[in-house]
């Protein structure tokens, strides 16, 4: 029996979410762990996969731009070659595009947004996924011989457990790439929200874009990403990439600090699975306090400078 993990490469490195997927595969304890890595990466970058348990790493550098068809074909081919009963993919934007295609190729049942290790139930396997934008969980019973799981990023911790880590060349059958990449615009030097473990977020209570310096400074001191509520991105105070919630990004960081955000149900839908939630709001009745672990009732413009100062002090002592 074996498990195949899709290892996503970005800028020559294996993404953290893919390392989580390898750790997850290790925890499943269901056979040899193979990883398939598509794109340019040197052996030391690929060896990261071994650190968390990959026994064999199938690598092809031939993939320079992303196309869901060519990626899915290569992943499915690797899955067939190593007889994988499970294909584990992190549900990043790339993962979302390839996982269903891989499932069709392998006639596999697919569950996406997975937050648990599969459990056997008779001849089926059951995994838990989040649904209703974090307002519930569903146990999905998978009734097929091969199964594809798309994991929610940041749901599983990295656990070192060395695997053999043998790197083997993959030469997948060539499949026509029908999409052309024109331009990639990525905010550089910032932690991508979907991967961030700590997030500092601001809402309409911040009054205007000129006040975001405080949010950014606190985030910078803590090593956090920044986020915002929908009206804030609608008014162009912040870019839409930062908007979290039902119609924005869903995140699951270890810490979410909400400043001047009321806590409307559609906002909570994107952040309620955060491990620890802090609400800062001048209105003691703000709904955010109902789901927060820590609350500060007060004016953000007085609270944030104190937090920045305390965080700086904490960081300087920690170093």
């Amino acid at each position: 029996m074996s498990i195949l993990v899709f290892a996503e490469i970005q800028d020559g490195k294996v993404k953290k979410s893919s390392l989580e997927a390898v750790s997850y595969a290790k925890q499943m304890n269901a056979g040899t762990i193979h990883a398939v890595a598509l794109g340019n990466a040197d052996n030391s970058a690929l060896a990261e996969l071994a650190k968390y348990g990959a026994n064999q790493i199938h690598h092809s550098a031939a993939f320079t731009t992303f196309d869901s068809t060519t990626y899915a074909a290569a992943i499915a081919e690797a899955a067939n070659a190593c007889g994988a009963k499970w294909v584990i993919i992190s549900n990043t934007y790339t993962g979302k595009s390839v996982a269903p295609r891989v499932a069709v190729r392998l006639k596999a049942a697919i569950a996406s947004g997975v937050v648990s290790i599969p459990e056997a139930s008779g001849s089926n396997w059951v995994v838990r996924k989040s649904c209703f934008s974090g307002k519930g969980f569903a146990n999905i019973s998978l009734n097929s011989d091969v199964r594809v799981l798309a994991l929610t990023p940041n749901s599983f911790s990295l656990t070192e457990a060395a695997g053999a880590g043998e790197i083997v060349a993959l030469n997948p059958a060539s499949v026509e790439n029908k999409t052309t990449s024109v331009e990639i615009k990525r905010v550089t030097g910032k932690i991508p929200l979907t991967e961030a473990e700590l997030v500092v977020s601001g809402g309409r209570g911040m009054k205007g874009p000129e006040n975001w310096g405080m949010i950014e400074e606190l985030a910078q001191v803590l090593g956090a990403a920044t986020a915002c509520s929908k009206p804030v991105s609608d008014m162009h105070w912040r870019t839409h990439e930062e908007h979290v919630g039902q119609t924005g990004i869903t995140i699951k960081p270890n810490l979410y600090i909400a400043t001047g955000i009321s806590g409307a149900i559609q906002h909570l839908a994107g952040v309620s699975s955060s491990k620890v939630i802090v609400a800062i709001n001048k209105d003691p009745e703000a709904p955010f306090f109902k789901i927060a672990d820590y609350g500060i009732v007060g004016d953000a413009f007085e609270v944030l400078p104190q937090l920045i100062e305390a965080a700086k002090k904490f960081k300087s002592q920690a170093n």
Binding site: K107, N139, I140, S141, Y294, G295, Q306
Partner: peptide, 29 residues
């Protein structure tokens, strides 16, 4: 190829712990 066998509600959150705004830095500790 799949079906939902059961649903679950998210675990209810514990009570919110309040920190005095005048001593907000305590949150970091």
């Amino acid at each position: 190829l799949s079906n939902i066998s059961a649903f679950e509600m998210p675990k209810p959150k514990g009570d919110c712990k309040y920190i005095d705004a005048a001593n907000a830095g305590h949150l970091i500790d």
